[in-house]
Design a protein around this nucleic acid. Structure first.
Lengths: 195, 195
DNA sequence: CCTACCGATCGGTAGG
DNA sequence: CCTACCGATCGGTAGG
C-alpha cells in the first residue's frame, strides 16, 4: 500500500537494531577486546541469530570498524560536546578531563581505548588506523585546551594526561588501586604547567 | 645401560625445548596477546607438533601462566639484576628505568605487560592474578628506589613512571611518536621529586 | 531478520 | 615428542 513509508519504517527499525548491536559491541569489546568480540557471542547476548547480526555489517572487520566509530561517537556526545559550552582553556580542559576520568572509573568493562590500543597497536590495517586516528584527535584536543589554558608545553601536558589515564585505568582494574585517578585529576589543576 | 644418565640428558633437553617454547611464547603474546597465543600458531612457528608442545604444559592456562612467569624472569635477569650492583637510590632508579624504556622501545612486539594487562584486567582468574602480582612488584620496586633517592611521594612517582611507560609504548606503537620516551626519561632526572 | 549449513581452527585426548 | 583424532566455535554463505 505505502511502499515508501513502509521502507522508511523498516530503515528506522534497522537503524535502531544496528545502534543496539553497537552498544553491546562497545561494551563487549571493552572487556574482551575487538577479537574477543565474536559475532556468535554478541548475537547470543542480544538474542539474535548470528547471521541476522552479521547481515548488518558484512564482515567481522566492518563490525570492528563500526564499533570503534561508535565508541568515539558516544564519547564525543557524552563528554566532549557538553564541555564545548564552556570557554576554551582551563575550565573546558577540566570538564573534558574529569568527564573522561569519571567514565573510565565507572564503566564496567574499563576503558575501551586502553583495551583496543594494546590489542591493535602492532597489527597494521584499517582497524588500527581508526584507533590511532581517534587517539591522535584525543591528544590534539587536550593539547589545544592546554595551550588555551596557558601551558608552556601543551603536547607534553597532553601526553602526561593521556598516560595518567591509561595508568589509572590499569592500576584500578588490575589491583583495585584508585589513587591513579587522583593523580590524573591533580594534573588538571596544575597551572600554568610544569617546568 | 645408563638409565639415570640417559634420564638426566633427556630432562636437560626437555628443559631447553621448554625454554625455547617460552621465548617464542613471550614474543608472540607481546604482539597477539595471551589469547592470540594459540598452541597451533606457536607450534607452527617452532616447527613442532601441537601435541608435542602441548605436552610440556597440559593446558592453555598453564602455558599462559608459564609465559607470564618467563616474561617476568627475563625482565628480572636483563634489567633488574644488573642494576642491583649500583647503590640504592637515584643511580639504581635511573638504571632500572632507562633499562625498561630501552627494552620497550626496542622489542618488536612492544611491551608484553601493556598487552597482557589490557587483555586480562577484567577477567578474574590465576592469569590475571599473576599479571597483577608482577605489576604490583614493579611499582613497589620503583617506589622503593624513589624513596631511597629522596622523593617526597614515592608511590606517586612510581605511578607516574609506570603510566609514562604505558603511554610512551602506546604512542610509539600506534602513531610512531617517540616523544613519550623522552618525557618518561625526564621523570628519572626530576629530583628530589615534584610538589 | 531467520534456519541450515560450510571449511578452518580452536583446546584437548588417545595411543604410541 | 609424534600421528590421528574429538567436539566446539570461529567467520562467513545460501537461500529464503
Amino acid at each position: 500500500m505505502e511502499p515508501v513509508s513502509a521502507t522508511t519504517a523498516e530503515a528506522k527499525k534497522g537503524e535502531r537494531t544496528r545502534s543496539a548491536i553497537l552498544d553491546g559491541a562497545v561494551e563487549l569489546a571493552s572487556a574482551e577486546g575487538l577479537d574477543g568480540l565474536t559475532i556468535g557471542h554478541l548475537a547470543a547476548e542480544l538474542r539474535m541469530s548470528k547471521s541476522g547480526l552479521f547481515a548488518h555489517f558484512g564482515s567481522k572487520q566492518e563490525l570492528q570498524l563500526a564499533t570503534v566509530a561508535a565508541a568515539g561517537e558516544r564519547f564525543r556526545i557524552e563528554v566532549i560536546e557538553p564541555a564545548l559550552a564552556l570557554p576554551p582553556g582551563a575550565e573546558r580542559l577540566r570538564a573534558i578531563g574529569n568527564g573522561y576520568l569519571e567514565r573510565v572509573n565507572d564503566y564496567a568493562g574499563g576503558c575501551f581505548w586502553f583495551s583496543v590500543t594494546a590489542e591493535y597497536d602492532d597489527r597494521p590495517g584499517p582497524v588500527r588506523d581508526a584507533i590511532a586516528a581517534a587517539m591522535d584527535a584525543w591528544l590534539a584536543l587536550i593539547a589545544a585546551e592546554a595551550r588555551a589554558a596557558g601551558h608552556e608545553d601543551p603536547d607534553r601536558f597532553a601526553f602526561e594526561f593521556y598516560a595518567a589515564g591509561l595508568g589509572a585505568n590499569a592500576r584500578f582494574r588490575l589491583s583495585g588501586d584508585r589513587r591513579g585517578f587522583d593523580y590524573a585529576r591533580a594534573l588538571l589543576e596544575r597551572f600554568p604547567g610544569p617546568a
